[in-house]
């Protein structure tokens, strides 16, 4: 029987209250939202926080998805299933639909949250690659107010993020650019598994050439979950299979995958190239008004 060690439990009734509780309990406290990473780790006693601060009651503050100006705002407490079901989000960014369909299983998706996924900081997290590809901004609130951090600077190493012990991730903001297509490609050993490797692509096509490109990679040791050299290769070029394949090759070159039971490093590097190529091709196909099908 798996049972966690002893811990205190507090239920926050507002974001300021959650921040007060973080101050009170200090760095050994942990925020719990969906709990699908933290609770199993506690039951295995790999994590033994002194206190859990439950933010599941903060849906009115942190659970919204809305277009605000030229950005899509996604609350940190939005559940995976809610993002998957949000037609505004998935029509604007099909990459969300692609990714959320292959994250865990429906049970986990109904509890797990967008913010929790990012804050867990797992090197194989799907949404970290998705938001990196989208060049999103993280909004973090602390005792002194809110601050923003580009998602590409959010992760500072495995399981380490820019969120300080007395802060709370409250929102992700995704820039909306006309003429943009996006897609996500993942290889998993079985449905619901963590990725062996996965790639997300976001491209903006203007006057027949790629004006902006975002490539997100996960589980392959890509720094900050992105591939800037490959993105650079795409800018100013006409979209096409050869260009996408070359971008994939460049992205793979800059990865540092590790062998584990999901696969050897050379295979993961191969997947970084192959999946980047496939994601770019599909992203290109769903650029609004794209001629190709």
């Amino acid at each position: 029987m798996q049972v966690p060690a002893k811990f205190e439990y507090e239920r926050a009734d507002s974001v300021p209250h959650a921040l007060q509780l973080l101050e009170r309990y200090g760095p050994e406290a942990r925020i719990v939202a969906g709990g699908h990473s933290l609770i199993p780790m506690m039951k295995l006693r790999l994590a033994q926080p002194e206190a859990l601060i439950d933010i599941n009651g903060l849906a009115s503050e942190l659970g919204r998805i809305a277009v605000e100006g030229d950005e899509l705002a996604i609350g940190a407490l939005v559940r995976h299933a809610e993002l998957l079901d949000d037609v505004t989000a998935t029509d604007l960014f099909p990459i969300f639909r692609d990714a959320e369909r292959v994250i865990a299983d429906p049970i986990v998706r109904h509890r797990g949250t967008v913010g929790g996924s990012l804050c867990q900081g797992d090197p194989s997290e799907d949404l970290s690659a998705v938001f990196a590809a989208l060049r999103a901004t993280a909004v973090i609130q602390g005792p002194g107010g809110t601050r923003t951090v580009p998602v590409r600077q959010f992760h500072q190493g495995p399981y380490e993020t820019a969120v300080e012990p007395n802060e709370l991730l409250i929102q992700l903001r995704v820039p909306i650019t006309p003429g943009t297509g996006s897609a996500y490609e993942k290889v998993e050993r079985r449905v619901g598994d963590w990725p062996v490797a996965a790639a997300g692509a976001v491209i903006t096509v203007s006057d027949g050439v790629i004006a902006q490109a975002g490539i997100g990679l996960t589980a392959v040791g890509a720094e900050h979950f992105c591939a800037p050299e490959a993105e650079q290769h795409l800018i100013g070029r006409a979209p096409g299979e050869e260009v996408f394949a070359e971008a994939g090759r460049i992205a793979a070159e800059h990865c540092e995958p590790h062998s584990d039971q999901r696969g050897p490093a050379d295979y993961k590097r191969h997947l970084a190239a192959e999946l980047t190529r496939r994601a770019l091709a599909r992203a290109n196909r769903n650029v609004p008004g794209s001629a190709t099908v």
Partner: peptide, 22 residues
């Protein structure tokens, strides 16, 4: 026959499935 195993088999370089993947 995981994806990694099949890909390595295609490439003529299979690994031992009962040991840690090198």
């Amino acid at each position: 026959l995981t994806p990694a195993n099949v890909w390595r088999v295609i490439n003529g370089d299979p690994f031992r499935t009962d040991l840690a993947i090198p």
